[in-house]
Write a protein that binds this DNA or RNA. Structure first.
Lengths: 148, 148
DNA sequence: AAACTACTTTACGTTTACGTAAACTTTATC
DNA sequence: GATAAAGTTTACGTAAACGTAAAGTAGTTT
């Protein structure tokens, strides 16, 4: 099965490079549900997975509220009556559409970065040409001097 | 050349489905630099392009500050001394890495959505089976009745 | 001229996602 | 058993990205 271990707050903080403050905040917002041994939190591997999902969601521009919605929905879905299951399927469809949009955005951005890079390189080439015109002699000396 | 028109604030707001408040805010943050005729703002097609970039950036999870940084850097780059050009090239590299990360995140998300969907469909199939067991006779009548 | 529409500035309010102390308890180590 | 290390709660602070009046101006329609 799963790695079936439990985790302390600082273990998770270190593994995913977030502060303990953030983790506690996620619990406060009910995105994580650690149990307790006395006062201290004990995180399950399910919590660990969820933390990973939270962070990925953030990188993808999802708010914590959105992510929580998905978690809650998935939990309901598991206790699955038919209506919930169908609802989940349509939501999955919507999310897929969102991902498509993001892929388009990324593709666009990549293209624009290509042309931006090209312009940079052209401009650099121009500068090089002018330099040579200004100092046509003594070429080798200058080039090595630049690398000091 | 470019479409070389100018735009009013409400034109842009309508086209991109944002509030005028947002557009003014972007100006306030110096992401847009409309000129004025009297009091009223006049946006150039460059502003229009930038607004489009701002919104795409947001969808990709970029903050306004990050986007502004890119704008500023690109402006500096155009007035291009060599150092700026080289700096821009390395920044482009970094952004590319970011995009790669996002593509990975999206791919992961898609895979997980695939398995989530599969589980949903399995669970649905299970429910259907149980229904049939509960009411094995009268099958056709029930199935059509469900679609009322 | 009155009313309407679009636009403006000023400014305070709100939500999100934490940061940052302060003061305290529990657990591990010497 | 003292002390450090890690964890806890409480609570106030903050930056980002606008929302939402409030009150005024400028041009346009009737």
């Amino acid at each position: 099965m799963d790695i079936k271990k439990t985790y302390s707050i600082s273990e998770l903080a270190k593994e995913f490079d977030v502060t303990t403050r953030s983790i506690r905040f996620y619990e406060d917002q009910e995105l994580l549900k650690p149990t307790r041994r006395g006062q201290t939190r004990i995180f399950s591997s399910k919590d660990r997975v969820r933390l990973k999902l939270i962070l990925r969601g953030k990188r993808m521009g999802f708010s914590l509220a959105e992510t929580k919605e998905l978690f809650d929905l998935w939990d309901e879905t598991l206790s699955g009556n038919e209506k919930q299951l169908l609802k989940m399927l349509t939501i999955l469809d919507n999310k897929r559409a969102q991902l498509e949009q993001q892929k388009n955005d990324i593709a666009q951005a990549e293209m624009e970065m290509d042309t931006a890079e090209a312009r940079c390189r052209e401009a650099l080439a121009e500068l090089q040409k002018k330099k040579k015109q200004q100092a046509p002699a003594n070429d080798e000396a200058r080039q090595t001097a630049e690398h000091k």
